[in-house]
Design a protein around this nucleic acid. Sequence first.
DNA 1: CGTCCTCGAGTTCC
DNA 2: CTCGAGGACG
Length: 683
Amino acid sequence: MPAAGKTPGSAATRARQLREAIHAHDHRYYVLDAPTASDAEYDALMRELIALEHEFPALLTPDSPTQRVGGTASDTFMPVVHRVPMLSLNNAFTTEEVEAFDRRIRETLETDHVEYEVEPKFDGLAIGLTYENGSFVVGATRGDGERGENVTANLRTISAIPLALPKALAPPLLEVRGEVLMLKADFERLNAAQRAKDQRTFANPRNAAAGGLRQLDPKITASRKLTFFAYGIGAVEWGKVKPPPTHGALLAWLRTLHFPVTGERAKVTGADGLLRFYKTMGERRESLPFEIDGVVYKVDDLALQRELGFVSRAPRFAIAHKFPAQEATTEVTGIDVNVGRTGAVTPIARLAPVFVGGVTVTNATLHNEDEVRRKDVRIGDTVVVRRAGDVIPEVVRVLLDKRPRDAREFVMPARCPECGSAIVRLEGEAVARCEGGLVCPAQRKQALLHFASRRAMDIEGLGEKLVDQLVDAKTVRTPADLYNLSAEALAQLPRMADKSAANVVAAIDASRDTTLARFVYALGIRHVGEATAKDLALHFGDLDRLIAADADALLEVNDVGPVLAQSIVRFFAEAHNRQVIDALRNAGVHWPRRAPRAAKSAGRLAGRAFVLTGTLPSMTRDEAQARIEAQGGKVAGSVSKKTDYVVAGATAGSKLARAQELGVEILDESALLKLLKEGEGQP
DNA sequence: CGTCCTCGAGTTCC
DNA sequence: CTCGAGGACG
């Protein structure tokens, strides 16, 4: 339909009509699953709108359906901090685990009747979509749950994702959580097209969707035909909108906002209701248009969800019931060993390539010598493999009737294959270790990789390949050497272009600005992981105080016992380690100074044990804990006769009962605040 | 001394 | 993700 000859006024009207028509088609297609226009008709509408907007650029709005492709991708893949963390679900694999889940919920809530909203578990990519006043502003991947990647430009190309919400219904702020995935039919079409073009095909729809979302060019994402299903919300400011009371009502509400929500849901009660749904979905799995890897059970009532709360990183009110992992059989062509950062020598089964659970597997760890014996895996055996938790390949069992006569048993080598040092297995320990220490190139490389890893110094681009080259060429021996690298020197290496060399140098440079906790973690002290490094940094506040600490001082730190204390003292007693630390500081590695946290023997609440329970009116439990600890108090997880105070908020449960039983003093929030205030006046 | 829980370490594939 | 080890607690 030619746009020529239109006046600006009539063009504006027509553009609005077209947008509404296209939007309505998207809505019927993705949300209602009842298309009324053919693809050709839809394309004609779209072409007319594009022509119109081309002739009258003033008509262009950012949320026009023609603008799905073409948004700038400049901030693509930049980190986005989730306002509300995107947690993962706990998994159940057996009937017993599902029954235990239901029992735990009923016991915690002290009721027999709990309604669950149940839905399929999509096998795609978890995404959060943020809308401000009804406009789509940011979309991010789950990432590590705390921060994800900005993929807004690519998400805009997905027609199932509304760019604007109905004005009258949209709250001021809404983050919709859901899954981006590729329908099986689109996946087959994509692979057929790839084959026709002699390009690589994708192993499964999930990988194809992930690949599609990580394109730098949104046009490619658009051509991949991705779709989206909403299943929850993150951050929200309700404004005038009345919050839905149940998860089911929330989903229905999201649907009125034009988000696709799967119809494969049900409301059930009791463990048998959950298990019936699992069985039904298992039977329907093949015939569904998308891939699922299990089902999800959620307590329907949102108030009860809040009451149940969270355990560490997963909600207590929901669980994923996964379908059993796919298994395959293959042959063990050899058993090699690998040397880790601490010198741990682990046997690895080399496998004839086999396709299982969506990928081709060629290696599987056998963990340690005992595990090899327990499973009785021999070279030449035919074994059953699966991907444990759908990720890490695992040898399940040996098919003994297929064992060839010449099958060979694994023998732990006496000497390290990397450095020739002795391999020693201490009495009572499961792991064998290479005694070479940093003389062993494998350990040296792993130590450097650990130093550079994301949760340590976060040096992007310093990967396995590069570390191999640098260590083999003896350019880098200790982490401190990294800070003397020049872009010119790096560019000398094979397969290293000027641009990437400059990037690595910039990343190394940026890592100079760090935190004490990251630095302590990066050192790679035995038994000191991320959590302990944080505890140490918080407790001592300063590296020199940590280095000077003796075992007794270290025992004062949270979760540090004799083994850790010994390990830390030994690490800093080593002259070589202190030299490296000095070299790092001289190279400009630094962190903000902090005063040491009040030691256990100091602070007004020193030596007093608190237990927190229920929801406090004005602060989170974490905040309360931080404030108690700041004054030397201790926060424990369960009530015992050693507990001095139980701080009880709303919906406090068994802990409160136990406190009353034991005659422990019970505080409410205001009493706690008073206690904290009294202390804050003092130094 | 035993049990439960958390943390550390190693691991696969793309 | 899984196993093993260390630490806290009863």
